[in-house]
Design a protein around this nucleic acid. Structure first.
Lengths: 124, 124
DNA sequence: CAGATACTAAGGTATATGCCTTAGTATATT
DNA sequence: AATATACTAAGGCATATACCTTAGTATCTG
């Protein structure tokens, strides 16, 4: 028998995925159920059971979606009696929306510069 | 021995996940590498190898990210010689950005109505 | 207090994601 | 033609996601 170290499988040293708030927010919004919840909460506070009604899904599954939304800070909730009431949280949502608007403007900016360039070229 | 059917595990009949364009766009934006690519492409067309430079990642891994972006319509690409040149596609990005702005306004709308209500209540 | 209601915890399955490596193919460059 | 460059294909691994079910725990209602 041998006690020498046999070449084992290669060690994978992946960093555990460390997500930023923006990552988490966009991920949360990538699911139609969760977007629907966000939309619905524009009308104010709603208890979980009422939020869940429109969805053909077991309640624990729906609750997972709420957890995703809450973990990333898009919604907050509070238990009152036996119901949990959910509401939107503006700040996180705005961070994502602002990122998108910034990109949109940045792109428009390039087009503007291109137009200026074409204008000049034309006038030659 | 018995040939009678033993109660097997319950058959799972999940529909294969059918994602909408909005689902795919938000999913694509949930990764920092992909958002960086989108940001970078605001400056215009860029070949894959140049796009990939800043990232500490094997090229095939990076190419996967580009595929996600292209599959969901956020970018388009074209091969010229041995390089593939990528550019942003405005429409898909705008769909996502518009959804966010609509939500933002919808929420603001509620706050406005609340203010009106509080105003009235105050004046009583 | 018994039963209904509204979650919540725990654990299971199928699929997807994000990375990797190795091995191509197509197009320059020398 | 030989080599280098720029991807592209294929397959593997660890973890995450999106559902599910079953079994709790609180909190009302009668």
């Amino acid at each position: 028998m041998s006690l020498t170290t046999v070449a084992g499988p290669p060690l994978l040293t992946h960093m555990p995925h460390h997500s930023t708030p923006l990552d988490l927010a966009f991920h949360a919004l990538s699911d139609p159920t969760r977007r629907a919840v966000v939309s619905r909460l524009a009308e104010g506070e709603v208890p979980v059971s009422v939020l869940a009604e429109p969805f053909d899904m077991a309640l624990p599954s729906f609750a997972q979606h709420l957890k995703v939304l809450e973990d990333c800070g898009l919604i907050a909730s509070e238990k009152r009696g036996r119901s949990r009431w959910c509401r939107l949280v503006q700040t996180r949502f705005n961070e994502a929306a602002d990122w998108m608007e910034t990109e949109r403007r940045s792109w428009a900016g390039r087009l503007d510069r291109l137009e200026v360039y074409l204008d000049k070229a034309e006038r030659k």
